[in-house]
Design a protein around this nucleic acid. Structure first.
Lengths: 103, 103
DNA sequence: GACACGCTTAGCCACTTGGCTAAAAGTCTC
DNA sequence: GAGACTTTTAGCCAAGTGGCTAAGCGTGTC
């Protein structure tokens, strides 16, 4: 059963890594923080990030795939919002890690 | 000052992304969880991860560079330990994100 | 229907990541 | 110092990432 347990653990770590990877990009972090203040359409986020819309759209697709945001099409626009506001807890943790790292 | 603020924000997001990226790999997550139970030498971790030692050594170098672990050379061996146990808080957060994602 | 608008997809590119093997470097024993 | 042992570094390669432009697709307006 040890092998089976390790296999299950590995699958769990892989899934967790997927979520972390989705957050591990400056532009995506910026978007997540912005979305914590309320829903935004793609063009608004593109303006803030300072990248082309196709690029931003793909970043959002990654966040959506990881289950961090969800989209809502209204007319010609698509609004994104945080699906799991708990994500914001990361920011504190990450900051404290960084502060310890600098020490 | 808006431009300067945005620039500083971007630098902050970039630093945070570095920490998240360091954690965003199944093998590294496994090692971090293992290290949360106490210090381990490289060969022990290599056995758990199931990878070659050079590979594990490089993963550990990434974690060290991100400020997540620190090393302690004792004789021919190198022991690693968590520098910021706070990292363990991530696991809960990530899990809850995943559960919401599956829903 | 024609057009503008917002967003996504596809294709291309440079760059990074993560695995391996081989070689080097440091430490302990004899 | 020779040899065994642990760890790191270097070099290679396949696969993934992230940016761009161009093209496609759905929606609202005239």
């Amino acid at each position: 059963m040890v092998a089976a347990t390790r296999k299950a653990d590995f699958a769990r770590y892989k899934a967790q890594a997927q979520v972390l990877k989705a957050l591990a990009h400056p532009s995506r972090l910026l978007m997540v923080e912005e979305l914590s203040h309320g829903e935004r359409c793609v063009c608004e986020l593109a303006g803030m990030v300072g990248a082309q819309m196709p690029t931003v759209s793909r970043h959002l697709a990654q966040l959506k795939h990881a289950g961090i945001v969800e989209d809502d099409k209204r007319g010609a626009q698509v609004f994104y919002r945080l699906k799991t506001p708990c994500v914001m807890n990361f920011f504190q943790c990450v900051t404290s890690v960084r502060e310890n790292a600098d020490r």
